[in-house]
């Protein structure tokens, strides 16, 4: 089945014109209302993701060496190889699929917000009214039907590409070589599966270092989450078993004391 091969989305920031057609397409397919925000004196439409905005074009304005420039980034769920959200979720509402998508099963979600707190990229947003988490699911319903995600479908600049992870990696590697002539810091993001989050299925071709675009340079699953899920919780489960053994041992001990000891409490020294 086509969905079982690993897929990926690729955002080429060098081609992005920040038309924000992808944001509209996302709202349309997801049937999400518009977020009305005040004008802040810049071109950034919305400051941040919200429970009704899963996809946001970030427009960073930089003035450097007498030159002004914009850095655009399509900001959304990264669909991590090791998704911290799924690790933190106590209800298995976030699931890493074989095709790479981190899907969200809303019926299981109780809105506890552990995904929001623990996400490596600070992506999920809790809808306080519905008490549900929200995030991009890479239009997995469309993927399952052989279509591409609505944002990639609508992109006029070919800045958003979608396909198998293998294809996308090849395109990305070729493109970054070309870009390096003009942008010496040009690099790929999320492609390397050996990074702290096992690579991502939302990958980027960047013209500069990740931090310029507001992305962590060395993304990783947080230490607190590792302590919690990889050490504290298994240790607690082990303790649970150990406690049961102790109780059983105590009962045996009681029976033995009962036999050889009928009353009498001369066990404190009488000095």
């Amino acid at each position: 089945m086509a969905t079982m091969t690993e897929i990926a989305m690729l955002h080429d920031v060098s081609k992005c014109t920040a038309c924000r057609g992808c944001m509209v397409a996302c709202k349309q397919w997801k049937n999400l209302p518009a977020d009305m925000t005040p004008f802040e004196g810049n071109y950034q439409s919305h400051e941040d993701l919200s429970p009704s905005t899963y996809n946001l074009i970030k427009m960073k304005e930089t003035y450097e060496n007498g030159n002004f420039r914009w850095d655009f980034l399509k900001f959304q769920c990264m669909h991590c190889g090791i998704p911290a959200c799924a690790k933190a979720c106590p209800e298995e509402a976030l699931v890493k699929q074989a095709n790479g998508v981190v899907s969200f099963i809303e019926d299981r979600c109780v809105g506890c917000g552990y995904c929001e707190t623990n996400c490596t990229f600070d992506v999920p947003r809790i809808d306080a009214v519905r008490k549900k988490s929200t995030k991009c699911n890479l239009c997995e319903d469309r993927i399952a039907n052989g279509m591409v995600p609505s944002c990639a479908q609508t992109c006029t600049a070919d800045a958003i590409l979608f396909g198998t992870r293998e294809e996308m990696t090849e395109i990305a590697k070729a493109r970054v070589q070309v870009l390096k002539e003009q942008y010496p810091n040009a690099q790929l993001y999320g492609v390397d599966k050996n990074d702290g989050i096992g690579g991502t299925n939302m990958m980027y071709i960047l013209t500069d270092r990740p931090s310029v675009f507001g992305l962590p340079e060395n993304p990783k699953v947080s230490t607190s989450l590792t302590i919690w899920k990889d050490y504290a919780q298994p240790a607690g489960k082990f303790l649970f078993g150990a406690a049961a053994m102790v109780v059983a041992g105590a009962l045996v001990n009681n029976a033995m004391i009962g036999k050889k000891n009928k009353g009498g409490h001369d066990h404190e020294q009488n000095q």
């Binding site: 552990y114 504290a232 105590a250 009681n254 004391i257 000891n261």
Partner: peptide, 26 residues
């Protein structure tokens, strides 16, 4: 989150000892 988790584990161990020594041990 991990602190709450560790607190639970420790507390359980303490409580088991406490209950045994109050009603369990002759």
């Amino acid at each position: 989150y991990p602190i709450h988790n560790i607190g639970l584990g420790l507390c359980t161990a303490v409580i088991i000892g406490h209950i045994y020594l109050s009603i369990g041990h002759p």
